[in-house]
């Protein structure tokens, strides 16, 4: 915070009082906005995980937040001095690989057996999975909040009086890259298109020669990897504990606001939720600020049930 103060001073000297206050206000707004952006990117990354699975299997992984938590703990377990003490740049890709395999295995051993059951069954199953993951993570890594010893966590960046943590910058950059990459993947590659086809009509996709089950496994792997990225970034930014996955609820809000079928929508939704939060905390009375993201979520559901960025269509008979 000291660095913050110093950084602000040059901009204020020699100006009139009114201007000075306005300048500080603007700076504060900018600061809130940027910190919201970084948080929003984490929500966006988790939301990406939801949307990936939804796009490919028409199901929602309610444990995506807990996937992120596990990813964070795995990277922490590999990197931190108290555990395996590997260099971060080896641990990070390792974590992503482990989580991708983890996602694939979850599909292989759990979700694949649900084939043909209703969406509600998947919803309930993944919620239960979240409980189990939280419990297991608590057993392995304990319930005390821990921080990842990450090179991203060091240092701040000063841009015209606004202070940005390096971790925040990394989060924003990586999130935008991830979204772009996944978007291209779904739009351009054969596998991506096959995944979309598989979600819309499993039977037809199967007849067209798409190995529906394997595609489903791959998408779970991909969403596991996404969760790992989110987890590493989140753990670089602040402390994590087994309940960190509950953040997933806000990511839901993000996914819904963006429209469940759209990857850029998920990111946009995450950013909206992330930016609203600090502003609500700053300008609204105590009890009301926590409500803001959920109130927005409900408003979107009521007025634009399929998200801000998508069109509503009905089932064909």
């Amino acid at each position: 915070m000291e660095i913050c103060q110093k950084a602000r001073k040059p901009g204020v000297t020699g100006q009139g009082t009114v201007l000075k206050e306005r300048g500080e206000d603007n700076l504060e707004v900018l600061q809130l906005f940027v910190s919201g952006l970084a948080n929003g990117c984490v929500y966006g990354l988790i939301a990406l995980g939801f949307v990936l699975i939804y796009k490919a299997t028409e199901a929602v992984n309610f444990a995506q937040g807990d996937f992120m938590m596990v990813g964070a703990f795995v990277s922490l377990g590999l990197t931190n001095a108290g555990y395996m003490d590997l260099p971060f740049w080896i641990a990070a890709p390792l974590t992503i690989t482990i989580m991708a395999v983890f996602g694939y295995l979850i599909d292989l051993f759990v979700l694949r057996h649900l084939f043909g059951q209703s969406q509600t069954a998947v919803v309930i199953l993944t919620i239960a999975m979240g409980f189990v993951l939280r419990f297991v993570a608590g057993l392995i890594w304990g319930h005390e909040p821990q921080t990842l010893e990450s090179p991203l966590a060091l240092g701040d960046l000063h841009i015209g009086g606004v202070v940005l943590g390096m971790a925040d910058v990394a989060i924003i950059v990586v999130t935008f890259l991830m979204t772009w990459f996944l978007y291209q993947f779904f739009q351009r590659t054969k596998l991506g298109l096959a995944m979309q086809a598989a979600s819309q009509n499993q039977m037809a996709a199967y007849f067209m020669g798409i190995p529906v089950k394997r595609v489903q496994g791959l998408i779970w792997g991909l969403s596991g990897a996404t969760a790992a990225v989110a987890g590493i970034l989140f753990a670089s930014k602040g402390a994590i504990d087994p309940n960190a996955g509950l953040l997933g609820i806000k990511a839901f809000a993000a996914a819904v606001i963006g429209g469940f079928g759209s990857l850029p929508g998920a990111l946009a939704g995450g950013l909206i939720v992330g930016v609203i939060e600090p502003f609500a905390a700053r300008y609204l009375a105590a009890g009301y600020s926590q409500i803001a993201p959920y109130a927005l979520l409900l408003a979107v559901l009521v007025f634009r049930p399929h998200g801000l960025f998508s069109q509503v269509r009905v089932k064909k008979v």
């Binding site: 919803v123 839901f252 819904v256 469940f260 959920y294 409900l298 009521v302 399929h306």
Partner: peptide, 26 residues
């Protein structure tokens, strides 16, 4: 308003409801 939503959207809306209930009671 909520029941116009299908499956998962309904589930998420009701999650929000449950979270909001706590704050509203306060």
């Amino acid at each position: 308003p909520v029941l116009r939503l299908h499956g998962i959207y309904l589930a998420i809306a009701t999650i929000a409801l449950s979270v909001l209930a706590d704050d509203i009671i306060v």
